[in-house]
């Protein structure tokens, strides 16, 4: 499965458009990370725990999107976008969406 955030994939032609696919996940941070973050808010710097959490969550959202595309019989997702929203305090929703397409290598 090829995933890109451009509208076309160089070297391939889009044969068929299968429609919008999406994946989302909502993650809450836990207390241990909160304590570390509280300390970091004194001295500043990167909150590694949160970075990890968000990376993980984004991967999960992408995986769910991929699963949907698979179901539709697509072999690529183009024009992928991400969005986040704060649902409740301390929890974030990560959302990935794109267009599932069927591609073929370009004839030369």
């Amino acid at each position: 499965m090829i995933v890109v955030n451009t509208e076309t994939i160089p070297g391939y032609v889009v044969r068929e458009t299968k429609g919008l696919v999406q994946g989302n996940t909502i993650r809450a941070k836990h207390v241990g990370r909160d304590i570390a973050a509280g300390f970091k808010n004194l001295v500043g710097g990167e909150l590694k725990g949160y970075t990890e959490l968000l990376t993980e969550a984004r991967r999960q959202a992408i995986e769910r999107m991929l699963a949907q595309a698979d179901e539709l019989g697509a072999n690529a997702i183009v024009n992928v976008r991400f969005s986040t929203s704060a649902v409740t305090q301390g929890a974030a929703e990560l959302f990935a969406y794109g267009t599932a397409v069927v591609i073929e290598p370009e004839q030369r």
Partner: peptide, 27 residues
């Protein structure tokens, strides 16, 4: 959206990067 260059494109993949930075007490 794209750059044209003489060399052919072999592979295109989604890449991501993220960072969470905290403010300090003074800031």
């Amino acid at each position: 959206r794209h750059i044209t260059a003489p060399q052919e494109v072999r592979q295109a993949t989604l890449v991501m990067g993220q960072a969470v930075i905290a403010s300090d007490y003074f800031k």
